[in-house]
Simulated scan of single mutants.
Amino acid sequence: MSRTAPNHRSVNRALSTLALLAFTAGAVTACSDHGSAAKHPTSQSAASSSSPETSQAGGAKLHMIDNDGHRLAFYVTRGNGSTIVLDSGGGEYSSQWKDIVPKLHAATGATVITYDRAGLGKSDVVPGPWKVESAVSDLKAGLEQLGVTKDVTLVSHSQAGEIANYFAKDNPEMLSGAVLVDANLPQFFTDEEIPRLVAATQPEVDAAKKDPDKPENRQLISTTEGFAAAHKAFHQVTWPDSVPATVIVSEKTPFEASPEDAQRWRDAAAQFAHGAPNRTLVTAEGTSHEVPTDRPDFVLKEIEDMCATQH
């Protein structure tokens, strides 16, 4: 049977899903201020954030967390009882959730936490390949240092789905539920799909290596190093039956111009959702892959519903 490879534009659109920064107009990239923010902090910027807690706009407070020799920025809007953690897609950082956080806090009364993964926002750059194990360690260290060890609803977009799956596997006792927003799921990364993704992104990787110090290029290169092996391992990860999950799929998927890959994306979400009776699959009508931006109201409702079922 003949196979249709994704065209160049759809591949670029898909890159953000895989944490490989897209370069075409209209695709999501790191915002213009990501570049300066992603660089390793100068002594002046580090000093300005050296206190464990500083006020931020909207009531959130910045906590600089130390883990494995680097510092990460966690933003906390304090509430009562449970905690909701919002984890951004590839190339994005905490600001992705700025419109959702105050509404979510007002609606649920919960503590709401966002954070910048290593190399993004106010968090330190960590040289070398991006490793999901390190990202999971960063998230867990941040939560533990903030005193959050249970009753967490984890909301994960795109690449953060990989972090969520490993985090849930290793720390199910910390989670009361999860909302996976058009997220990377193990079922998608088959032995047939991985080579397609690697081949499709190679032109962007080659171009990025010509200017490896540019923040977005650094992010792209770090994510593609060891991509195939890492995602073969990811394909084997199993979500714990004890943790309920809502799986949100965008209408267009990250592969809008490639029907074959788009269907595989939908099938993977359905397969994940059908893996246990406490998982729900919903489609965000009228959305691109950027569901939190396209339909923040939809995401907000699904988070509220998940929290309501746990209390």
Score class of each variant (00 low, 15 high):
Met1Phe: 13
Ala27Cys: 05
Ala38Met: 10
Ser43Lys: 10
Glu53Tyr: 03
Gly59Asp: 08
His63Tyr: 05
Asn67Leu: 03
Arg78Thr: 14
Gly81Val: 15
Leu86Phe: 00
Leu86Thr: 02
Asp87Tyr: 10
Gly91Asp: 01
Gly91Val: 06
Gln96Lys: 15
Lys98Arg: 14
Thr108His: 13
Thr108Asn: 13
Thr114Phe: 01
Pro127Thr: 11
Pro127Gly: 12
Val132Asp: 05
Val136Gly: 06
Glu144Phe: 01
Val148Pro: 03
Lys150Glu: 03
Val152Phe: 08
Leu154Lys: 08
Gln159Thr: 15
Ala160Trp: 00
Asp170Phe: 09
Met174Ala: 08
Gly177Thr: 12
Val181Gln: 03
Gln187Pro: 00
Phe188Gln: 04
Glu192Ser: 04
Glu193Ser: 05
Val198Tyr: 00
Ala200Asn: 00
Thr201Gln: 11
Gln202His: 00
Val205Ser: 06
Asp206Thr: 15
Ala208Leu: 00
Ala208Phe: 00
Asp213Leu: 03
Arg218Val: 06
Thr223Asn: 01
Thr223Arg: 15
Thr224Arg: 15
Ala228Gln: 14
Ala233Ser: 08
Val237Asp: 02
Pro240Tyr: 02
Val243Leu: 07
Thr246Gln: 01
Ile248Cys: 06
Phe255Gln: 01
Ala257Phe: 11
Pro259Gln: 10
Arg264Ser: 09
Gln271Gly: 03
Phe272Ala: 03
Gly275Gln: 05
Gly275Thr: 11
His289Tyr: 04
Met306Phe: 07
His311Leu: 07
